[in-house]
Design a protein around this nucleic acid. Structure first.
Lengths: 238, 238
DNA sequence: GTAGAATTCAAACGACCGTTTGAATTCCGG
DNA sequence: CCGGAATTCAAACGGTCGTTTGAATTCTAC
């Protein structure tokens, strides 16, 4: 399929096209966030970006590849920053394991920075990621798995040393819960008004949000593992 | 639009149609879960259900109304069961507030029961709900808000009494995190393989999943609220 | 200034979408 | 068994979709 595409080989790789590519990526980021992948048409997207319809296929090859490009542009640096922060943390701690709080902070801070940086998509992009996490399309799920695999693996090892009372399997589940609360929180915010008395006026910014999320997640991670006596108590409540 | 539709008035409301309606609902539940709302076509849906294409509009009016019917069929009884369980809990506790663990159990148990009951859609349906939570379509978000409003409001009051150290605003956020971890966990499971060493062979069933989730969430709910000295520690990690 | 690559553009392709229609069929009380 | 309501059915409607094409245009190096 991309065989017939010019595939920008030769001298100036993308000098004049950079503007068009960026405009497409920006419009796609906004529209994919607002309407989802399937419900966003390339026609509305290219109209919003002020470019020709065919430009998407010329620069990205297909709608799916465009979506992956939208995610990669921000996600790749963010996850790399997470990895670097963790490495710095472990370097500073010498041979000892960094605390659970610090590890979690290293995980949340790059997301917080991205949320505050309007030039890098800001909150819109993080909501898009949250939505992508729940998208059933196989190509999205495979792409996200590959994007996050290394970062998650490193943090799992770090948490394993900081939380010795947890088995590897228990920690795997808890990291699942952490990512769930994180992505859901980032995706939801203003759109889903499940909870009525949310202060409309005093617009909670994302920094405060993550600082509320951190104590919640740290406490969850440190919680004692599954206890069979409590398990019975849970079910008997029915 | 539904003016021209026969709208099954008269004697036998839906006797012979029950079978067709159920077949459509079952196929829709499965396909909406697998491919999402937008990516599921009525043609593939009616083919899978073994009914005529026009049957969807005859029995439900539109694709959107069908989606709402799919959710209502299971969600309405589940949330009612949650409300009843909480009421029973508060009755048994007399004037005192039930414990945080018991309140959370009352919230999780109906979901667990639904997940185990294959005749009521089982895990497939809960995954569909998890996906619907992240869907940007306005009609889905509005529908879910209305479906959950009363249940959430009642549980918020109960948690507020069980967790007196939390302000109403803090609790609102923490319930947001709880719903996030819950819906994400229910939606993800087998599809998103972010975490490599997840035991493939020893298939974790949903009961064990919720029993791992409960201690995590209880600890998060009980955690001390936002502390400004810790807040500084969080940001300084950068 | 001119060749040649890179990019933009208008137009169309075939496919599939949700929905509607009106006739054919099934159901059921009298 | 028959008449009217309920349901099913095949066919088509108008639209929109992602993608492709080939010519027009812009850019860049010589």
């Amino acid at each position: 399929m991309p065989a017939s595409r010019p595939a920008r080989r030769g001298v100036a790789v993308d000098a004049t096209s950079a503007d068009t590519k960026t405009r497409i990526l920006d419009a796609a980021e906004s529209l994919f966030m607002e309407h989802g992948f399937e419900a966003t048409s390339l026609r509305s997207l290219t109209t919003a970006a002020g470019v020709n319809l065919a430009a998407v296929h010329y620069h990205f090859g297909s709608k799916e590849e465009l979506f992956q490009a939208v995610l990669t542009r921000r996600l790749d640096p963010m996850n790399q920053e997470r990895i670097d922060l963790l490495a710095k943390l472990e370097r500073e701690a010498g041979g000892r394991a960094p605390s659970c709080e610090k590890i979690l902070s290293a995980m949340l801070i790059p997301a917080l920075r991205l949320a505050r940086d309007e030039k890098r998509g800001g909150k819109n992009f993080l909501r898009l990621v949250g939505r992508a996490y729940a998208d059933p399309a196989p190509f999205i799920r495979h792409f996200l798995s590959e994007q996050y695999a290394e970062m998650i693996a490193r943090y799992k090892e770090a948490f394993l040393r900081a939380l010795p009372h947890l088995t590897r399997q228990e920690l795997t589940w808890r990291l699942h819960f952490v990512m769930g609360a994180l992505s859901y929180t980032l995706a939801g915010t203003d759109a889903l008004k499940l909870f009525a008395q949310m202060t409309h006026t005093e617009r909670e910014d994302d920094e405060l949000l993550l600082q509320r999320l951190a104590p919640f997640l740290v406490a969850g991670l440190k919680a004692p593992p599954l206890d069979h006596s409590r398990k019975l108590e849970l079910v008997s409540g029915a």
